[in-house]
């Protein structure tokens, strides 16, 4: 539980970060809250000779809710997501999801940017951001670009982000309709056995649009277009819900671990999704 030796860098601006990333290439890594990275370093599963702390970098903090858009600085902590009143009003699903991440200690340190950039299929924010159709802003030596959350994840710990790029912000249109973030875990501080993020628009008695994403059921978060479509245009009755569940089951690919065998995870995924849909529909 003791990491290998590393150099600690603490640049004050993004130019300093990029310069260090360019200088050390593969040997450098940025650190946000450190609550995924440092455990890996202590286990010596990650050896990082140059650690670049983002704490002092200007412009990465802050939550902005304006003109129907929400923008989160990459260094906003998970705790801040829970505390922020404007966010609770505009996008309450964030608060609901953040509350089931880890425990308060982790949330005081862990950031939303680190959570989505990490690429761990167990992280809760990536699926949620796919559900919200969020965009990630990346800044690198060649300037700035945005990538949709739904296009960002390639495989476990593999993302669209280039090694020399830093994720600076996350933004999405303020969601409307009913929402739910439902997660089954073994205990406090555990990653999901299965989790579902659901947002539904209701028009009269009909579901006008639906967005559904699942967490920790594949090596990447799973946004299921088909599941959303299965609900759209229906009254979200039992048949529609089970069609959505079936669509998700076709898209996920869980693996056995200490949380249980594949059959169990698939079953629970269906149950959790059903409950999330029902709760979201009740709120729509």
């Amino acid at each position: 539980m003791i990491p290998a030796a590393f150099e600690y860098h603490r640049p004050a601006d993004m130019a300093g970060v990029i310069a260090l990333l360019e200088e050390h290439g593969d040997d450098a890594r940025v650190m946000a809250g450190g609550h995924s990275l440092i455990p890996m370093m202590k286990l010596r599963m990650a050896e990082i000779p140059h650690l670049i702390d983002l704490q002092d970098v200007a412009g990465l903090k802050g939550i902005a809710v304006a003109e129907g858009r929400v923008t989160l600085g990459a260094m906003v902590t998970q705790h801040e997501l829970i505390q922020h009143q404007g966010l609770a009003n505009t996008a309450p699903i964030l608060r609901e999801a953040a509350l089931v991440i880890a425990d308060p200690q982790v949330r005081y340190m862990g950031t939303v940017g680190g959570n989505v950039a990490n690429g761990d299929p167990g992280n809760d924010m990536p699926g949620l951001m796919q559900c919200l159709d969020a965009e990630f802003t990346l800044v690198g030596p060649d300037g700035q670009r945005t990538v949709a959350a739904r296009d960002f994840y390639e495989a476990a710990y593999m993302t669209e982000r280039e090694d020399e790029e830093v994720l600076t912000a996350i933004s999405f249109a303020a969601p409307s309709g009913g929402y739910a973030y439902e997660k089954q875990k073994r205990k406090i501080g555990d990653y999901a056995t299965a989790a579902a993020a659901v947002i539904l628009q209701k028009d009269g008695g009909t579901c006008a649009a639906a967005s559904i994403a699942m967490t920790n059921l594949s090596d990447v978060p799973v946004w299921s277009d088909a599941a959303g479509e299965a609900l759209t245009g229906t009254s979200v009755d039992a048949a529609a819900v089970s069609a959505a569940v079936q669509a998700v089951l076709d898209d996920i690919d869980p693996v056995e671990d200490n949380r249980g065998p594949v059959a169990f995870k698939r079953h629970v995924a269906g149950i959790i999704l059903t409950r999330a849909i029902q709760r979201a529909w009740g709120r729509a």
Binding site: R186, R259, G260, F264, H267, V268
Partner: peptide, 16 residues
Amino acid sequence: HDHWRIWKTANDLGLH
């Protein structure tokens, strides 16, 4: 009796 083992008991008894 963790979640999956309880689930399996229910499953083996045909409760799903």
